[in-house]
Amino acid sequence: MLVFRRYGFALLVLSALIFPFAFYSSDVATRRDLSFVEKLVYTVSRPIELVFNLVTHQSRDMVRSYVDLRGARGEADHLKDENAKLAVKIQMLQEVEKENERLQKLLNFVRQVNLKFVSGQVQSGDPSFLYKSIRLNRGESEGVLPGMAVVAAEGAVGVVMRTVSKASDVLLLNDPNSNLDVIVARNRRRGMLEGSAGQTMLFKYADRGSRVLVGDEIVTSGLTGPFPRGIAVGKVSRIRVEKDGVTQVIEVEPAVNFAEVSEALILLRNSREVDVIRRVGGGEWMKKLVESVPGRSGG
């Protein structure tokens, strides 16, 4: 104790100086498996977290109910009009859907609507305000595993990075540590979508000669990663050439407004590569590999 009082601060200064060297010199990423200490922190803090979750949800619901009631009458009239228009549109779309189904049968197109999923509510956001993740109220007990894809109605949201029994943390696509295999919907050119420190994402490693234009829609490739192909990811919002005249920075605006996601679907299927490795090497071998080499989260 006396030693700590005398040299404690000096030791701290030393460790605070060494830590950044270790941190930046290693390829540090968010691990998928929880360590013993992390599990302990989860278990101990979970009851308090649940109480906090309940209180914040109730308060948010109360505020929302009040706000909703204020404009309820005007909104009801507006919705009646919209409802009538939508009824007509639905009839038209039903016809289009029938035609679509017939064409798909002809093309032997395998629809991927039979994917299993669980829906989850967003409980919390990332408290760092810089890295981007959300916590959903579905976890291992519902069959959710790290590496599974998360989607919303507007498109891809992210990849599950950690799970506990009743919750899972999702790394959003615009997080700097996120990577996803994508294609340009217009010309099927392949590339890698990486998150960034800002709100947009960066389209990298585009095929040589692929012409990407502002407004191009970017969708998941389905070739690697947990996402099935064709899920909307975003649109090219800006293309600029760096000072070197060679590097091209392609910014992609996400299809999903991550701040407004309140519910999301977790697709209960694993990454394709992971499945292949599991089949070839067996579950135990895969587990050892994951433990020995902490990989980056992402698609």
């Binding site: 830590f19 941190f23 992390e38 993740s133």
Partner: peptide, 17 residues
């Protein structure tokens, strides 16, 4: 640091550092 790490997508050890 432990609680922040549990909630965040930050790389391991970032908050402690």
């Amino acid at each position: 640091a432990a609680l922040m790490h549990m909630f965040s997508g930050a790389p391991d050890g970032f908050y402690l550092m």
